[in-house]
Structure formats: structure tokens, C-alpha cells
Simulated scan of single mutants.
Amino acid sequence: MKDHDDAHHHYGGESDHQHGEHPRGGGRGSGRFRVQRGDVRIATLLLLAEKPMHGYQLMQAMEERTSGAWRPSPGGIYPLIAQLEDDGLVTTTAAGGRKLVTLTPAGHAHIQELRPTWADPFANADASHGGPDLRGAVHDLHGAGRQIGMIGTLAQQEAAIVVIREARRALYLILAEGQQ
């Protein structure tokens, strides 16, 4: 098995007690909750210590534990599961067309050994929802765009593209104003 820090660099994360912030915050959320590098790994291991889960269940559990502020993408979870399996910390078994992920005895020992050094990956989630619901607004915009794309006329679709591009530009201008 790889040593602790080396394994984290392999997944694109750093040590579990990293001080820097992940640049994107993990996919969904208000933008105030920031996921520390290595937190997807820690969260995955901690959730699997509670019970075996499928990859989708892991993503859902992380979203639930953060009140919707954080949900890792499949592109973050499934390669991580494969790496944890390569490291001997989990096993996967086919169950109902899905792969059930279970901690191995080595995985349990790994958690027991390193848990005292890990920050709680879900700790900052409660404080993250103090501001406006940007996620909801973006979701609503996406839904309207999809509707126009599915049933709108060509002229409506072209007008929608102009509106969306202008909204994008306006959002970047808001950020630029804050940096002056």
C-alpha cells in the first residue's frame, strides 16, 4: 500500500489536513462551501465505514450531509473508488447491476489510524448556506434554456443564446468589479 500523502497526490488531492481550498467547491452549492483537497477521499472512507454503498449513494450521502452544498461528480467518485480498491482499502462487488463498495479490514485499519488527523469534510457545510441561493437561480436558468432548446422555434433559440451569453458576460463583470 502507498504511504498516506503519496496516495493523496495520486488522486489529485493533497494530504487530508490540507490548508488550501479546492478551486471549485465540488460541483454544486452556493459557492460559499469550499471542499478541501482530499475531502472526497476522506468523506468516501467515512461513509463506507458506516455501511457499504454504491457510487451514486456516496454522492447522494455527501450532498445530504452538506444540505446540498456539495455533491462530487461521477468523474470524482468512480476513479477514487478504483484507486481505493487498488490500494486495498475497499472491495467492489456486483449487486443488481451496480457495484457495491465495501471497506476491507485494511480500510477499517486505515481509518482508525488516520482519523485523528483528518478534518471533518462535512464541518463547514452548515455555515455555507447563509447567502443567496445562487445554485437555485442557475438551476432555474438551465431549466428555461433546456425548454427553449426542446420546444422553442429557431428564432427563440437564437434569442436565448444571446441572453445567456449576455448573462455570462454580466456575471464576469460582477466578479471583475469585486477585484478592483
Rank of each mutant, 00 (worst) to 15 (best):
Q18Y: 10
V101N: 00
L58T: 02
Q83M: 07
Q57Y: 09
G178N: 10
A106E: 07
M53F: 03
G107P: 01
A82L: 07
H19C: 14
A7Y: 01
Q179E: 09
R32I: 09
V101S: 00
A123P: 06
R98E: 02
T102L: 04
T117C: 09
A160Y: 05
G25E: 02
G20H: 10
H8I: 10
R34W: 10
A43T: 02
E64G: 14
W70S: 02
L171Q: 14
G88T: 02
G31Q: 05
G76S: 09
L103S: 00
N124R: 08
A109I: 13
I81V: 08
I161A: 15
L100W: 03
R28Y: 07
D3S: 09
A69S: 12
H54I: 10
T117Q: 08
Q179V: 11
L45T: 00
V138D: 12
Q83R: 05
R65I: 10
D120C: 12
E21F: 13
I111V: 10
D126G: 06
F122V: 02
Q147H: 15
E166D: 15
H22Q: 11
D140C: 15
A137V: 10
P121M: 07
H54D: 06
Q60V: 12
R135C: 08
K2H: 12
H110M: 02
G68Y: 03
E63H: 11
R65H: 11
L80F: 00
D126I: 07
Q180M: 13
K51S: 08
P121G: 05
D87E: 05
H10F: 14
K51M: 09
Y78D: 03
E64A: 15
G107A: 05
H8D: 10
A155T: 06
Q36C: 08
H108F: 04
L175V: 14
A94E: 09
G75N: 11
G131V: 14
A49G: 04
A109D: 14
H139V: 12
G149D: 06
E14F: 05
R168Y: 15
L134A: 12
G130F: 04
I148D: 04
G13M: 03
G136R: 12
R71M: 05
S67Q: 04
L84M: 03
Y78L: 08
L154R: 08
P72H: 03
L171I: 14
M59N: 04
K51W: 08
T102A: 05
G27K: 03
H9V: 12
A94Q: 10
K2A: 13
G131E: 15
L173G: 11
G13F: 01
R65L: 12
M59S: 06
R165C: 12
G130M: 04
E63G: 09
Y56H: 14
A160R: 06
E85S: 01
L58D: 01
G131P: 08
R168N: 15
G76H: 02
L171V: 15
R115Y: 07
M53R: 02
G13T: 04
I77A: 01
W118I: 04
R37D: 04
W70N: 01
L154K: 09
K2R: 14
L100C: 07
E85N: 02
H129Q: 11
T104H: 01
R37F: 05
G68N: 07
L80K: 00
Q156A: 08
T153E: 08
R169T: 14
D5E: 13
E85H: 00
R169K: 15
N124I: 07
D87T: 00
